[in-house]
């Protein structure tokens, strides 16, 4: 289980997270929604070790992980599909997926997970020899998720996977995310697209300027009038 307690994260003097507490149980799909600049990306960067909190703690299965370097955190079973995808642009699709498994040594498991990723995103198999920088935005998004899955994570962090996708593909993407969860991988997903994200969430949080405003099950939040007004554009 992932647990964030009273996290305070800064960029220089900018106080980006102001005491955020949040939990993701094993195999759970938790969604964090929030507007531009709410701190969603900062939250994920802190979990995967790219940023270190100035206050509070991140623990994973009871062990303190805030302060560990990213290359250690991935070995503990947390992998991310980061903001703006960040695929390796001059590596092929196949090499990007291999890089996802860089922290692993079990060849058999890696082969099996490669097949799983190709099963989830068949287009990646067709493009496996193509250089990632020449893929479309949607394909790069799939590659970023596939690369993270190649690390065989117990918890997958996803930063706005619907960003830049054609509307038709967004629905498919959320279905795929749901399938990944059903296979047993816990997911912490941050999204601006609140309606669809809360629709597949077990639980959710609303983040506003660095603070948790509301939390509840996906359905509770979808029904909440504050959420409807602010994020679902209605009533």
């Amino acid at each position: 289980m992932l647990e964030l307690e009273e996290l305070h994260v800064y960029y220089g003097n900018v106080h980006a997270l102001k005491g955020v507490s949040l939990k993701v149980a094993q195999g759970e799909l938790v969604v964090v929604v929030g507007a531009n600049g709410a701190g969603k990306t900062t939250l994920l960067r802190t979990v995967c070790g790219v940023l270190h909190p100035r206050g509070g703690r991140v623990s994973w299965n009871g062990e303190l992980i805030s302060g560990l370097a990213p290359q250690r955190i991935v070995r503990r079973g947390i992998a991310a599909s980061p903001d703006n995808r960040q695929v390796f642009p001059r590596m092929t699709v196949m090499e990007n997926l291999e890089m996802g498994a860089f922290s692993r040594r079990d060849r058999v498991g890696i082969r099996r997970d490669l097949e799983t990723v190709y099963g989830l995103f068949p287009v990646l198999r067709d493009r496996r020899g193509q250089v990632a920088g020449t893929l479309s935005g949607g394909e790069q998004q799939m590659l970023a998720i596939g690369r993270a899955l190649m690390a065989a994570p117990k918890l997958l962090l996803m930063d706005e996977p619907s960003m830049g996708l054609a509307p038709r593909l967004v629905t498919t993407m959320f279905e795929t995310i749901h399938r990944i969860r059903d296979r047993g991988t816990g997911i912490l997903l941050v999204e601006q697209n609140a309606r669809l994200a809360l629709g597949i969430a077990d639980r959710g949080y609303v983040l506003e300027t660095g603070r948790v405003l509301l939390s509840g099950t996906g359905d509770e939040l979808s029904e909440n009038h504050l959420v409807r007004q602010a994020y679902l554009g209605g009533e």
């Binding site: 991310a80 980061p82 695929v87 890089m99």
Partner: peptide, 8 residues
């Protein structure tokens, strides 16, 4: 950054 995130 991405390299570090995957264990490099």
């Amino acid at each position: 950054r991405a390299a570090a995130m995957f264990g490099v």
